[in-house]
């Protein structure tokens, strides 16, 4: 899980081309959007692309709480793991 979180932080920095920040500076429980890391809706779309490419998330299995999965790195990691388990 910790490894996946580290992987996701690197993915966030790389995929969103965030400048001036290193993956390890992102806290796993820090909100990704708004007041936390300050990502926005375009970042969310980009992150969606990156997650699909890296982990092959399938639309069919996604339900309404998709937004909660995007809350922070930890929730994203849990979501990806649950997708893998299916």
């Amino acid at each position: 899980m910790e490894k996946l979180e580290r992987e996701l932080k690197t993915l966030i920095v790389d995929a969103l081309k965030l400048e001036d920040i290193a993956p390890e500076e992102i806290d796993s429980e820090e909100p990704l959007f708004n007041d936390g890391l300050g990502l926005d809706s375009i970042d969310a779309l980009e992150l969606g692309v990156a997650l699909r490419k890296a982990y092959g998330i399938k639309i069919e299995s996604v339900t309404d709480d998709v937004k909660q999965h995007f809350a922070n790195v930890r929730s994203l990691a849990r979501f990806i793991q649950s997708q893998r388990a299916e």
Partner: peptide
């Protein structure tokens, strides 16, 4: 806001009002 929820809502023959911001980020679908 996310394709994951938008596509789950679509049905046959429907209309999707979207934008280049979304349509340029369809990779992997």
């Amino acid at each position: 806001e996310l394709w994951e929820t938008a596509l789950a809502a679509l049905d046959a023959g429907s209309v999707l009002v979207t934008s280049p911001a979304h349509l340029t980020r369809l990779a992997g679908i």
